[in-house]
Design a protein around this nucleic acid. Structure first.
Lengths: 345, 345
DNA sequence: CTGAAAGCGCTTACAG
DNA sequence: CTGAAAGCGCTTACAG
């Protein structure tokens, strides 16, 4: 057996393996791809040579030849946001199941970055994009002509022409508020309200809130609708401080995300109110933050695993061309309410 | 001007651009690479053709030709762990500064996965690996022959033969305990202690704890050293419950990470103790969780940004071959203590 | 200053 | 059942 001398740095190619095994490089390639008709003797020689040379197939070369990479981008705002970090982990997991590899890109709520992601597949590095925009508008999206598969993730529901998997924003919000009503609360403040300029999460969750009130025959009091800031913890703190200062009575708070709810929780405790005895609190997203607070936070779990699984499945089908005939598909994940101490005590 | 007809699906190549511009494809390539000596007229024609055809360079082809991809793996346990999610964000940011792209891989504390990452560069998909193992042993690591640059990240310090950037585990822990001592605490419990079987974070942070006690002339009471579980929140809760049940007096708790400290915080509050009045609490890692608790958690910030920057810098130099002559380099990031309500009130 | 040639490491018809 | 050829889209010496 010829032992080919290679420097430690240069990885072996199929040519090296072919030489070592005494066959053509095509035969090696066929073996690697699992083709059937290969004579047992040949097969053995190739196996040995692969082992000897510690061969690894060069994915870049394969990708170039195949015109696809088996990678998809997951484009999210930031890994510093727990919801998106956890979503990324779920997507990585779901993608592994179907043989796709995930490339995480962070766009940092920057419109330019979001547009950049859609301007190409990073030079064909990825085959498609799972896209969770926060800064660009619906119009921006519709205007673009995009030459590769994308699946939209997240809050918004609209007729984008793309595959889309959304969370049950209004339904989840409604369930959260019904939970509070079921506990006897009637004066339910809501934190994170935004002007209804789009069909984003804020609007949808507010709709769910209103629906729950209406169904229970509770009149909406706009003094309990708090907004004007962002969706981070401090915004929740400030909102609740303003509410307390206003003297408007309330016995519950629904935060449009966990950060707002936790901020509110903090504001309440600091003001000497007891949670949930005086005021019950519910959030949305069910991030791990909800587990770390004292009291632990009741929250709406938006079905992160399911969102990841569906999104990856849609992408996989588009990439396989199976549903290229079909129009855009829309899915909504199942949510559930996780009741914890901030409402149950 | 010839307007070449292309199907919307097929991206333009440099050959298409060359034809459109009436030059050779090499000229196009040179233009794209920013070579100087190109006649203005030629330059203009190429620019126009690029624009017309909306050309994007095919990274896969470039990578194949160049034998490198400009990507590095960041191999971490999981994006579900806030510290690592935040570290990933910092690394992505630092890498962008030096023109590297980060591919996040999660190994989920699984030894097989960790070994798999080191078994190759994913078929040359990445040029090197930033590696934060948790499951494999020092011996596993030393035994491997690795044919590409790796930079170790994280807790452990040992003579691995690889570039390494660590956090100031013992110094940070010492500062945390000195902070408590400075506030007048003498009976400082410590949570997360592990048998000293390796030089991991637990051992180092314990060392820092002991150093601080020694320096202050406080005798170590082993009844205050709590361990036996993992490093998640529940372990902190249970540890503190056992301590309270034991009747051993204490006036402070140092948790080896934020999760443990927050668990302890929770256990204390549930037992009716006041934080920090009765018991002050300090954690380690300064994740966002420390901001979300009530009271907010004093914590040691291990210098995540700096760790990311140094690690990326080391990798960058290795990839450029500048320090191939030099031996392995070790760095330790600067930490600082972030004092918050759980100790200051 | 620009073109013709070779080659990165694969895969896939095409022969035989 | 296996080999010779072509080509994926780039970049880089080599000529001129």
């Amino acid at each position: 057996m010829t032992s080919s001398r290679r420097s430690a740095e240069k990885p072996a190619t199929i040519y090296d393996v072919a030489r070592e095994a005494g066959v053509s490089h095509q035969t090696v390639s066929r073996f690697l791809l699992g083709y059937q008709g290969i004579r047992p003797a040949t097969r053995r020689k190739v196996e040995e040579a692969l082992e000897t040379l510690d061969y690894r197939t060069n994915i870049t070369a394969r990708n170039l030849r195949n015109g696809r990479t088996g990678m998809v981008s997951l484009a999210i705002p930031s890994l510093n946001q727990p919801y998106f970090a956890e979503l990324a982990q779920s997507v990585i997991h779901a993608a592994r199941e179907v043989g796709l590899t995930v490339f995480v890109e962070t766009m940092e709520n920057d419109k330019e970055r979001e547009l950049a992601v859609l301007s190409g597949t990073r030079g064909n590095l990825v085959d498609g994009v799972l896209f969770a925009p926060t800064a660009m508008s619906v119009d921006d999206l519709s205007r673009l002509k995009i030459g590769f598969p994308i699946v939209l993730l997240g809050d918004r529901i609209f007729d984008s022409g793309f595959d889309h998997v959304a969370m049950a924003n209004s339904e989840g919000a409604r369930a959260a508020v019904e939970h509070l009503i079921g506990l006897g609360r009637r004066r339910i403040a809501v934190v994170g309200v935004e002007p209804p300029r789009n069909l984003g999460a804020a609007h949808l969750r507010f709709t769910g809130y209103r629906d729950a009130l209406d169904a229970a025959g509770i009149e909406f009091d706009e003094r309990l609708a708090l907004g004007g800031g962002g969706w981070i913890k401090d915004d929740g703190v400030h909102a609740i401080e303003r509410l307390i200062a206003s003297g408007t009575p309330f016995d519950a708070v629904f935060g449009f995300n966990d950060a707002l709810a936790l901020g509110a929780l903090r504001g309440l405790l600091r003001a000497g109110l007891r949670v949930p005895d005086d005021v019950a609190v519910v959030g949305f997203d069910d991030t791990q933050d909800a587990l770390y607070s004292t009291p632990t936070l009741t929250s709406v779990a938006p079905g992160r695993e399911e969102i990841a699984r569906i999104a990856v499945g849609l992408m996989d089908r588009r990439l396989k061309g199976q549903s290229s005939a079909g129009g855009p598909q829309e899915f909504q994940a199942d949510f559930h309410l996780v009741a914890r101490e901030s409402s149950l005590g």
